[in-house]
Amino acid sequence: MARKAKKLALVRYSRDDIKTLKAHSKARTPLKNIAKEMKRTEGSLRQKAMNLGIGLGHQR
């Protein structure tokens, strides 16, 4: 029996989320820590950072 893929709910980034992401970028916080704090996947955070034109992670 085939398993059905679980649908994920789309959670939009609020202004506060973007401010937090920029602050972590400036502080060079490791991506793993940011993902835990914001309860988002690392891929999601990387995509948003790329769209905003900022770098993420401590090693960039």
Rank of each mutant, 00 (worst) to 15 (best):
G53N: 00
K19Y: 10
L21K: 14
K22D: 05
V11D: 03
L31E: 05
A5L: 11
A2I: 14
R28M: 09
L8E: 11
I18C: 04
Y13E: 03
L8Q: 12
Q59W: 12
G55D: 11
T29A: 11
T20H: 02
G43T: 00
I34R: 00
A2D: 09
H24I: 04
L10T: 14
P30W: 01
G55W: 06
K39A: 05
L31S: 08
N51A: 15
A5S: 13
L45T: 10
P30T: 01
M38N: 03
L45Q: 07
R15A: 10
A27V: 01
K39R: 09
V11K: 10
A35S: 05
K19P: 00
R40A: 04
M50F: 09
S44C: 10
G53V: 00
K39F: 02
L52V: 01
K36Q: 12
K7Q: 15
K48V: 13
M38P: 03
S14K: 01
S44V: 05
R46F: 02
L31R: 03
Q59Y: 13
K39P: 01
H24D: 14
R60D: 09
K39D: 06
K19M: 07
L52F: 00
K22V: 14
K4L: 08
T29W: 03
G55T: 14
K32I: 09
K22Q: 15
D17V: 07
R28I: 05
T20Q: 06
I18P: 02
P30F: 02
I18E: 07
H58N: 13
N51P: 07
P30D: 04
T41M: 09
R46D: 04
I18A: 04
L52R: 00
A49W: 00
R46G: 06
S44R: 06
E42D: 08
Q47P: 00
A9W: 03
L21R: 13
D17R: 07
L8S: 11
